[in-house]
């Protein structure tokens, strides 16, 4: 008896309450959805930033094909002007075949040979000290025929807006899941308290302080919240892995989505984000159930 009591005292609130089993299952589903929402949020944030950063590092100059104009001469002139501009790190002209290759997915192979495809100059920009684009455009237009400058600012603004909207949506979903979990735990805690009313009464009679009773309650909800959180986290991790490995994200096809999302550097943040799910679930379960119990004790005192 002595050893058994010391090593394994029975929990004062029995753990096997049906309410807690239902809560564990429902919270596991909530945590699974929360895990997916966290991953979506991180992907959207990461991708929007990566795209925006990529665009802000570069600008493109386009030279239209004009008859009676020496294209190579205009290209050299434009390159010289660009390279001499403050804030430009480097500038390189793409060869004709590179421009044709960009159009091939839409027009088909071989069709572009006879088309007047514009020549492109890719400009790398010093982010901290960017050039005066208005002045560069004015200089180029004055001195080079058929030239236009694309600073990507319009795309960048649209991407930024899209990114912000998606982050907002994912955050909203996460907040709704958290709210639903809080309501769920609150209802379950009331059920558990109702089921444990006789035990609570006995505890009060034998001189247990509210803090002691609440600690017994915390143990139940801690276990339930942690269990549900871990199950939900692993389920969402498995889903992400299945989508990543099974959805053609790794073979360079499908517009090279793997590279686009830059998953290689991204995994650690996803795992860190998912690790927050069981922590949050445990915190919600313990905190909300404790508040509910303390309210009950206060009402009855």
């Amino acid at each position: 008896m002595t050893t058994a009591s010391k090593l394994n005292p029975s929990p004062i609130f029995p753990n096997a309450a049906a309410h807690l089993r239902s809560l564990a299952m429902t919270m596991a589903v909530m945590c699974y959805l929360a895990g997916l929402a966290v991953v979506s949020l991180l992907i959207v944030q990461h991708t929007a930033r990566a795209w925006a950063e990529g665009l802000s590092h570069e600008a493109t100059v386009q030279l239209q094909h004009l008859s009676n104009v020496d294209e190579e001469q205009e290209l050299t002139k434009a390159l010289a002007l660009i390279k001499s501009t403050r804030g430009v790190i480097s500038a390189a002209a793409l060869d004709k075949s590179a421009g044709a290759k960009l159009l091939e997915p839409w027009l088909g192979k071989g069709v572009t040979d006879d088309l007047p495809i514009p020549r492109l100059i890719r400009i790398a920009i010093d982010e901290h000290n960017p050039p005066d684009f208005a002045q560069l455009e004015a200089t180029l237009t004055a001195k080079v025929k058929g030239v236009s400058l694309d600073t990507h600012r319009r795309w960048q603004a649209q991407l930024s807006r899209m990114g912000t909207s998606l982050v907002f949506l994912a955050s909203l979903i996460l907040a709704l899941i958290t709210l639903a979990s809080v309501i769920l735990v609150s209802y379950t805690a009331r059920g558990v308290i109702a089921a444990n009313t006789a035990i609570i009464e006995v505890l009060e009679l034998v001189g247990a302080e509210p803090r002691f009773i609440s600690r017994q309650n915390d143990k139940q909800f801690f276990t339930t919240g942690l269990f549900a959180g871990v199950i939900g986290m692993f389920a969402s991790l498995l889903t992400c892995a299945a989508v990543y490995y099974g959805g053609g994200f790794t073979d360079g096809s499908a517009m090279d989505l793997g590279a686009m999302f830059n998953f290689e550097n991204f995994g650690e943040r996803v795992i860190a984000g998912l690790a927050l799910v069981p922590l949050l679930a445990t915190l919600i379960a313990v905190w909300v159930s404790r508040l509910t119990l303390l309210q009950h004790l206060k009402k009855n005192s």
Binding site: M1, I12, I199, L203, G207
Partner: peptide
């Protein structure tokens, strides 16, 4: 008495509390 606790644990309960 609390039916899920042993007799020993029932008697011990006020001390735990």
């Amino acid at each position: 008495l609390l039916d899920h606790l042993t007799i020993f644990e029932n008697v011990e309960l006020p001390l735990r509390a």
